[in-house]
Design a protein around this nucleic acid. Structure first.
Length: 813
RNA sequence: GGGGCGGUGGCGGAAUUGGCAGACGCUGCGGACUUAAAAUCCGCCGGUGGAGACACCGUGUGGGUUCGACCCCCACCCGCCCUACCA
C-alpha cells in the first residue's frame, strides 16, 4: 500500500479535471440549474486564510448540489479596481494596472490549489475594459432613467496635498492627512449620486428571500423607516421652512426650533446682533462635525439666531436656534423641539433656559410641571394643553394630529428614511470612469454608447500628493460635446467600486459577450442566484447596492424578478491564534500556501470546515489541523489496506449498514443546512465505526463495499482530491464528482432496539433497552419495575409517570 | 446611546431545537511497538468525595415557567462586531 501523499495526488487530479473541463457549467435545459455564488475577492496579492474559509465550504456546498442532480454554475472573478493599488503606485511608481494583473495572476494560482469547482471560463475581472465598458453603460442607463444626479456634497480634503481623502486616509483624533499630517478640512464638491432612496420602500420587503434574519434586520435598521409628518413653519420675516417629526401630536409643546448649522435658511433669519455668534458656531461645526460624533453623551451646544418661527397650530412665536445635533443629511435638516417629551431637547432647553411645556400627561404620574420636572417624560398618556387635541389619548393623537395639520394645510403625513442616496464619485484614477461630458453650453451629456468604453489613459503621472492623475492628464479630458460638437470636458471622477460589484454576478453569465452586459439566453437559464455566500460585513453596503441595482434594472426591462439573490449565507471570521483579528502588524497571519504545501489542500479544506461553526468563525488553532490530516491518513488506510474477510456475523454487517445510512441522513441534512463542522465530525465518527467493523471481519463484504462507496461520495465535496484518488483506486469509475448523492435506506437506518433513559424527578437513574415498537404501558412498567427506580420509590406509588415515546421516561414521586 | 452576535471542560466545538450535557477533534497523561525517536495503535481525561459501585455539584449571574431548561420568559453581568445626536 502506498502512503497518502496529498502533494502528488492533488496536482494530478487538478490537472485532469482542468483538462477535461469537469467543472464547466453550460446551459442544459434537461437539468434544474443552481447558481452558486461566492463574493469575489479583491486582488490584494495574496490569498488569505479568510478566503479559504469563505470559499471552500461554498465550494463543498456547490459540489453537493451537483451530486444532487443540479446543473451547478460556480464562477469566480476579481473586484480589481480600488484605492490600495493606487496608493501603492504613489509610493513606488508601479502602475496600478500592472500591479493588479500581477496580483490576479498570483491569486489565480493560489485559488487553483484549493481544487474548487470553479468554471474558469466564466472568470470576470472588473478592471478589464470589456468589463468596465458595461459598468459605464449601466451608469448611462441609470442616468437616462433619472436615477443619477449631481449634487454638492462634502468630502474630506487635504489642502496641502490638494486631494480628496478616503476615510481610511484620515488619521488620528485631530483628523490629519496620512501623508503630510495636515489637518483635514471639509470641502464641498459637486458629485454624482444614485437615487437609492427611491427604492427605500421596496428594499424593506424581502420577497421570497431566504436570507438570515440578522441581515434583514441590519438592512431594515440601515434603511431606517420612520413614519411622521412634515410641517411647514413660517418665519417672522416672511419665509418658511419644513421640519420632519415623528410626533406631530406634540406640536403644541414645541418651544424652540433647531436648524442644522448648514441649513440654507440660517443666513436669512440671523439678526445682525446675533451674526457674529452664529458665524463662529457654524465655522466650528463645519470643522468638527465629524470629529465629535464619537462622543455620544457630548454636552449639547448651540446658538440662538435671533430669528423666530410661528407655530402653525397657535401662531405662537418660537425662537430658532442652530445646533450641530441636527443633521442636514437627515429629514429636512430642521426640527421642532419639544423638551418636555424628548431627552435631547430637554437637555438643550435646560442648558439655555428655554421653556419646557408639558403636552402629554402619562396616566401613572402626578401632574407634570414643566418648570420643575427633572427629566423629559415618555410621550404616552393623555394630551393636555393641546388645543383641539386636548383630552385625546396619545395612541390616537398621532392620527388626529396628522388629520388636523392636513386639514389646515400646513403639513401632511410623511415617511422618512435614514438611507441616503449612493454617492458614487471618487476623485481617483483606478476605477471605472464616469462616462459623462460637460459642455459650457449644453451642460452634462452621457458619452455616446458606441464610444464606450471610456478607457483609462495609461500614460499617467503619480504625484506624491495623491491628486487624481485623470485631472492632471494633459489631453485625456478634452473632448467634443456629443450634443453641439463644441469643446467640452470629460468627468474626471471614477466610480465607487461597489458599482462594479453590484453586477458582477451578471457578467459571469457571459464574460465575453459584446452585444450587452450579458447574454439574455444565459440570464434566462441561470438567474437568479440560488445561493450567495460571503461576509456579514457587506449587509449594509454591497448587499443593499446590488439589490437596488437589480430593481432599477428591472424597471428598465434589463433584469427580471424582484430580487437578484434568493438565498444568502454568511461565514464568520477566522481570528489569529491570539484571538485577535489577523493583521500583518500583529504578526498573527496564517499563510495558507504553507499549510497547503505541508498538509495538502484537502486537509486544509476539511479543517476549515471542521474547526468552527461556519457562520461564527473562531480563532485559528495550529495544532488542530494535525488531527484533520491524521483523519485523512486513516481514511486512506481504511480504504486501501486490505484485511482478511473474517468470521463476520450478520449482526456486524447489519450494524455497519445501519451506521452508514444513519450518518448519511445526518450529513445530507447538514449539507442542506450549511452545517459544515458536523459534516466533518460525522465523517470522522463513521470512520471509527467502519474501522471497528473492519476489525470484526466486515472487509470486502457487500456491506463493506457499500460503506466505502457511500463514504467516498460523502467525502467528495469536502476533500475532492483524496476522494477521487480512492474512488478510482478501488476500481470505481471516474469521476466521483459526477456521481449522484447516495439515497438513505430508511429500513437499514432504523434501530431495532432503543435505549430509553429513565429519570426520577428529572434525574437520570436508569437506562432501559426496549424494542423500537414497545407499547407505552410496557415501557412504563419496565421502568417502575427497575430495582434502581424502586430504591427511590421506597414502596410508594409514583405521583406521575411520563413517557415520551422513544425518548425517555420521567417518574415523579 | 442604538443595533447585531455570543458566553458550554485546559482549548475549538457538539447536543437533529424542551428530553441521557460535553459527540468529534486538539492538548495533556498512561501504555504497546522501537536500541531510540518519529509515525502508528490502545486506554484515561468537567469538578468534588470515594478503593469501588456510586453520590453530589455543573452550560456567565439571579429569578420564573415546566414532570423535565444549555434551549422558553423576566432582570442583570461580561466579551466581540457594526453604527453614531435619526428629530
Amino acid at each position: 500500500m502506498s502512503d497518502y501523499i496529498p502533494q502528488e495526488i492533488e496536482k494530478k487530479w487538478q490537472a485532469r479535471w482542468e483538462a477535461e473541463g469537469l467543472y464547466h457549467a453550460d446551459i442544459d435545459e434537461r437539468r434544474p440549474k443552481h447558481y452558486a455564488l461566492t463574493m469575489l475577492p479583491y486582488p490584494s496579492g495574496d490569498l488569505h486564510i479568510g478566503h479559504w474559509y469563505a470559499m471552500t465550504p461554498s465550494d463543498a456546498r456547490a459540489r453537493f448540489m451537483r451530486m444532487n442532480g443540479f446543473n451547478v454554475m460556480f464562477p469566480i472573478g476579481f473586484d480589481a479596481f480600488g484605492l490600495p493599488a493606487e496608493n501603492a503606485a504613489i509610493k513606488d511608481g508601479v502602475h496600478p494596472m500592472k500591479r493588479t494583473y500581477q496580483n490576479i495572476e498570483r491569486m489565480r494560482q493560489q485559488l487553483r490549489s484549493m481544487g474548487a469547482m470553479w468554471d474558469w471560463r466564466r472568470e470576470s475581472v472588473s478592471c478589464d475594459p470589456e468589463y468596465y465598458k458595461w459598468t459605464e453603460w449601466f451608469f448611462i442607463q441609470l442616468y437616462k432613467k433619472g436615477l443619477a444626479y449631481r449634487k454638492l456634497s462634502p468630502v474630506d480634503f487635504c489642502p496641502h496635498c490638494n486631494t480628496t481623502l478616503a476615510r481610511e486616509q484620515v488619521w488620528g483624533e485631530d483628523r490629519h492627512c496620512e501623508r503630510c499630517e495636515t489637518p483635514v478640512i471639509k470641502k464641498d464638491l459637486s458629485q454624482w449620486f444614485f437615487k437609492t432612496t427611491s427604492y427605500a420602500h421596496e428594499l424593506l420587503h424581502y420577497v421570497g428571500m431566504d436570507w438570515p434574519e440578522r441581515v434583514k434586520t441590519l438592512q431594515t435598521n440601515w434603511i431606517g423607516r420612520s413614519e411622521g409628518a412634515i410641517v411647514t413653519f413660517k418665519t417672522e420675516g416672511g419665509g418658511s421652512f419644513e421640519i420632519f417629526t415623528t410626533r406631530p401630536d406634540t406640536l403644541w409643546g414645541a418651544t424652540f426650533m433647531v436648524l442644522s448649522p448648514e441649513h440654507p435658511l440660517v443666513e436669512k433669519i440671523t439678526t445682525p446682533e446675533r451674526k457674529a455668534d452664529v458665524e463662529a458656531y457654524k465655522a466650528q461645526a463645519a470643522r468638527q462635525s465629524d470629529i465629535d460624533r464619537e462622543a455620544a453623551d457630548k454636552e449639547k451646544t448651540g446658538v440662538f439666531t435671533g430669528g423666530y418661527a410661528l407655530n402653525p397650530v397657535n401662531n405662537e412665536k418660537i425662537p430658532i436656534w442652530i445646533a450641530d445635533y441636527v443633521l442636514m443629511t437627515y429629514g429636512t435638516g430642521a426640527i421642532m423641539a419639544v423638551p418636555a417629551h424628548d431627552e435631547r431637547d430637554f437637555a438643550f432647553a435646560r442648558k439655555f433656559g428655554i421653556e419646557v411645556r408639558v403636552v402629554i400627561q402619562p396616566q401613572d404620574m402626578d401632574a407634570l410641571d414643566g418648570t420643575t420636572m427633572p427629566a423629559s417624560v415618555p410621550a404616552h398618556g393623555t394630551m393636555v394643553n393641546s388645543g383641539p387635541l386636548t383630552g385625546t389619548s396619545a395612541d390616537d393623537a398621532f392620527h388626529a394630529a396628522v388629520g388636523f395639520i392636513t386639514e389646515k394645510g400646513f403639513g401632511k403625513g410623511a415617511v422618512n428614511y435614514k438611507l441616503r442616496d449612493w454617492l458614487i464619485s471618487r476623485q481617483r484614477y483606478w476605477g471605472a470612469p464616469i462616462p459623462m461630458i460637460h459642455c459650457e453650453k449644453c451642460g452634462w451629456n452621457p458619452v455616446p454608447e458606441e464610444e464606450l468604453p471610456v478607457l483609462l489613459p495609461e500614460d499617467v503621472e503619480w504625484r506624491p500628493t495623491g491628486e487624481s492623475p485623470l485631472k492632471l492628464h494633459p489631453t485625456w479630458k478634452q473632448v467634443r460635446c456629443p450634443s453641439c460638437g463644441g469643446e467640452a470636458e470629460r468627468e474626471t471622477d471614477t466610480m465607487d467600486t461597489f458599482m462594479c460589484s453590484s453586477w458582477y454576478h451578471l457578467r459571469y453569465l457571459s464574460p465575453k459577450y459584446t452585444q450587452g452586459p450579458f447574454d439574455p439566453k444565459e440570464y434566462n437559464y441561470w438567474m437568479p442566484v440560488d445561493t450567495y455566500t460571503g461576509g456579514i460585513e457587506h449587509a449594509n453596503m454591497h448587499l443593499i447596492y446590488t439589490r437596488f441595482f437589480h430593481k432599477a434594472l428591472r424597471d428598465m426591462g434589463i433584469t427580471e424578478g424582484p430580487e437578484p439573490m434568493l438565498q444568502l449565507r454568511n461565514q464568520g471570521m477566522v481570528l489569529g491564534e491570539d484571538h485577535e483579528k489577523m493583521s500583518k502588524s500583529r504578526g498573527n497571519v496564517i499563510p495558507p500556501d504553507e499549510l497547503v504545501a505541508h498538509y495538502g489542500a484537502d486537509a486544509v479544506r476539511a479543517f476549515l470546515m471542521f474547526f468552527a461553526r461556519w457562520d461564527l468563525g473562531a480563532p485559528w488553532n495550529s495544532s488542530g489541523i494535525d488531527g484533520t490530516f491524521r483523519w485523512l491518513r486513516r481514511v486512506w488506510t481504511l480504504v486501501n489496506e486490505p484485511s482478511g474477510m473474517g468470521d463476520c456475523s450478520a449482526d456486524t454487517r447489519r450494524m455497519l449498514r445501519r451506521r452508514v445510512h444513519q450518518m448519511l441522513r445526518r450529513i445530507t441534512r447538514d449539507f442542506r443546512e450549511f452545517e459544515f463542522n458536523t459534516i466533518v465530525s460525522g465523517l470522522m465518527e463513521l470512520l471509527n465505526e467502519m474501522n471497528k467493523a473492519k476489525e470484526a471481519g466486515a472487509y470486502a463484504t457487500p456491506e463493506w463495499n457499500e460503506a466505502v462507496d457511500i463514504y467516498l461520495r460523502m467525502l467528495a465535496p469536502v476533500c475532492p482530491h483524496i476522494a477521487e484518488e480512492l474512488w478510482t483506486q478501488t476500481g470505481r469509475r471516474y469521476s466521483v464528482h459526477t456521481q449522484s448523492w447516495p439515497q438513505v435506506d430508511e429500513d437499514a437506518a432504523r434501530e431495532m432496539e432503543i435505549v430509553i433513559p429513565v429519570q426520577v424527578n428529572g434525574k437520570l437513574r436508569e437506562r432501559l433497552t426496549v424494542a423500537l415498537d414497545a407499547a407505552d404501558d410496557l415501557v412504563k412498567e419496565m421502568a417502575l419495575a427497575s430495582p434502581l427506580v424502586q430504591k427511590y420509590l421506597e414502596g410508594n406509588a409514583p405521583k406521575k409517570v411520563i413517557y415520551v415515546k422513544g425518548k425517555l421516561v420521567n417518574i415523579v414521586i
